[in-house]
């Protein structure tokens, strides 16, 4: 089996693993829910007050998704550059 085929199968597996919960679990928003930990903390220690607040918070979901997309885009750009560079280098050798 070629490397590309192997990798495609691996990626397909990741996609399947990711989709299954979306199909199987109904009535869920799949919240990232840092909130649940806060709830758990206040449940265990009801008098706990966070002593430090975020310096800055994205004003809303749109800006947050912008920043997450930016994070992924920066990473992907570097990865693509790297493999493009390596492939070119290998071919000219």
């Amino acid at each position: 089996m070629t490397m590309t085929k192997k990798n495609l199968i691996l990626i397909l597996m990741v996609i399947i693993i990711t989709i299954i919960p979306l199909i199987v679990v109904k009535n869920s928003e799949f919240g990232g829910a840092d909130g649940a930990a806060e709830e758990m903390i206040t449940e265990i220690q009801p008098n706990y007050e966070p002593w430090f607040n975020s310096i800055w918070e994205p004003p809303g979901g749109e800006t947050e998704s912008l920043l997450f997309a930016l994070q992924a885009a920066i990473g992907t750009g570097i990865i693509a550059y790297y493999f493009g560079y390596q492939k070119g280098k290998k071919q000219t050798r």
Binding site: T18, I20, P21, L22, V24, V25, N27, S28, F30, G31, G32, A33, A36, F68, A69, Q71, A72, I74, G75, T76, G77, I78, I79, Y82
Partner: peptide, 18 residues
């Protein structure tokens, strides 16, 4: 870069959270 990309992806899981 790889860590950057992966940690930006909140994946759904079987428990109904991501």
């Amino acid at each position: 870069a790889f860590a950057f990309v992966l940690s930006a992806m909140k994946l759904p899981s079987v428990t109904g959270s991501s």
